[in-house]
């Protein structure tokens, strides 16, 4: 079974280890600005919410790309940006209804979560198991996908099948 990131905001303490691990894994620096996973802070309630790409089945980003730069990794189901092909047009950044592909002005390309090839650094770095990499059954991300299915514009493959792994 394909695995998926599972996020449990209840367990997140806002330590930002995941952001740093992500930035280091992918950019070689401990600069959270380059992280593909982001922690949002709800100050009033003192809560933290980790947030990243769900590798959703609809893959709006992939379909919107005019030059075929986003491909699906057959093993992990991740939608992966090929930097060499990406021209930096940013259409994927407005197409993804989760807002989880972002433009990086310094490289002129977009960045998104690629599941680190099947061994996500964020999950390894998280000390509280707020982020885990688990068999994809009914993870928090599936619930997000269900929300996004409302954005659906007529895919046959559409929508939230709770048991379907990412990328189908």
């Amino acid at each position: 079974m394909q695995k998926s990131l599972n996020i449990d905001p209840n367990k997140c303490t806002g330590c930002l280890q995941c952001e740093m691990a992500c930035a280091y894994e992918l950019e070689g620096s401990f600069n959270p600005a380059h992280s593909r996973i982001k922690i949002f802070h709800f100050e009033e309630q003192g809560r933290f919410v980790p947030y990243t790409c769900t590798q959703c089945a609809e893959a709006w980003c992939l379909h919107a790309c005019p030059v075929d730069a986003i491909k699906m990794d057959a093993t992990t189901g991740a939608k992966v940006v090929d930097e060499a092909t990406c021209v930096g047009c940013k259409v994927c950044t407005i197409a993804c209804p989760f807002g989880t592909v972002n433009y990086n002005q310094s490289s002129g390309k977009v960045i998104k979560c690629d599941l680190c090839g099947g061994d996500p650094a964020c999950a390894k770095a998280c000390p509280t198991e707020a982020i885990t990499y688990v068999d994809a059954n009914w993870t928090g991300l599936d619930k997000m996908r269900e929300w996004a299915a409302k954005t659906d514009t007529g895919t046959t493959t559409a929508a939230a099948k709770p048991s379907a792994p990412a990328g189908h």
């Binding site: 807002g99 989880t100 409302k150």
Partner: peptide, 15 residues
């Protein structure tokens, strides 16, 4: 705005 721009689409289209 370059970060999380897509949520604008998400919010509009899911009403």
């Amino acid at each position: 705005l370059t970060q999380h721009v897509g949520v604008l689409r998400g919010l509009i289209q899911t009403e």
